[in-house]
């Protein structure tokens, strides 16, 4: 896997690497993909119908309003919470 592909994947994944780490990761990803590529040896097609034809909907819970978690608890693990989630300014 070349450096540009790994850089592209890192961007997609919202991750950043130093140049040195990016090169190391590219080497590791190349070895990993060689292992993953063994599935190319088998000719097989996924049958979506087989997985989805007997989905039963009668066991679902009723669509009714239930108590939700208090705001204080929802925010208890957020940094800089002032009764809301605080993020850097998005709109200039």
């Amino acid at each position: 896997m070349d450096l540009n592909t790994v850089k592209y994947l890192a961007d997609l994944s919202k991750l950043e690497y130093t140049d040195e780490k990016l090169a190391k990761t590219a080497g590791e990803m190349t070895s990993i993909m060689e292992l993953m590529d063994t599935i190319k040896d088998i000719d097989i097609t996924y049958d979506a119908h087989l997985d989805n034809h007997n989905v039963y909907l009668d066991g679902l819970r009723r669509d009714e309003i239930m108590p939700s978690m208090p705001t204080e608890k929802v925010l208890s693990n957020a940094v800089n919470s002032k009764n809301c989630f605080v993020v850097p300014k998005v709109v200039e």
Binding site: T5, A10, L12, S13, L15, Y17, T25, M29, M33, M36
Partner: peptide, 17 residues
Amino acid sequence: SEGFGDEVKRRILLGNY
């Protein structure tokens, strides 16, 4: 990038690929 370790990052990259 600061929070995840190397193996977790590798698997995220592989998954997104």
